[in-house]
Amino acid sequence: MKKVVALLFIVALAVLLLYVVANMPPMGDPENPTATHVISRYLERAEEETHTENVVTGVILNYRGYDTMGEVTVIFCALAGVLAVLGRERRGVIHAFVDRSEVPSSVIVKTMVRFVVPFIILFSVYTILHGETSPGGGFQGGAIIGGSMIIFTTIFGLYESSRRIPLKVRASLEGAAVMGFFLVGALGLLGGGNFLTYAWPRVARSLQPSLVVWLTVLVEVGVGLGGAMVLISILFAMIREEEEIAPAP
């Protein structure tokens, strides 16, 4: 009986979804609501209004800055939730389950990781700072930094990697993404505009383009650093094993 009800429910859901898909406008049609609404304005005027060559970055950070601020807040809240459940690591007694692995990492792996991680971090710096003109940006770059630290932690253990990025640094940088947005928004208010508008009416017109670019870069760097630190802190909170909690060998 239960199975029949479940099957009926699934079939009904499938019919509904397929009906909606069949009624969707075809992909790439110029008559689409997505193509006739605000996209044309973005494509035509994004470069002069946001002064970024990559329209996607202009849309994410400038036109839809409020959306991105909300997303960044969600990520920050995720970290707060993880830390509330799992807690921070304490200095001195921290171990990760990777430290206790029966298979030690070989010299080849260690050398490769030590060699490659700086280049990954360099690439993420490029992704963050060049995000205005090429695909990428703060969030992607932050995720790449987080990935590089994950590789480092799985090979060298929690002790070594939390020495490289100590708790003090992480705790003060975790809020960098949210703080960056609020700082730029508040600066916009001081400059005589609206919250998060990037355009300051009180500043001379000739200075506007470089001002917008620098504010965008500030937000990008904030999002990158904040995202990276949030990911690293979640990883550390998840793999830490303190001496007294760890099971006896």
């Binding site: 996607v56 990428g136 969030f139 995720a143 990935g147 994950i150 990911l231």
Partner: peptide
């Protein structure tokens, strides 16, 4: 490409 970068770093990696 922006989404592809995010998916590769976050979805496949982290």
């Amino acid at each position: 490409p922006d989404l592809a970068l995010t998916e590769a770093a976050v979805g496949a990696g982290v």
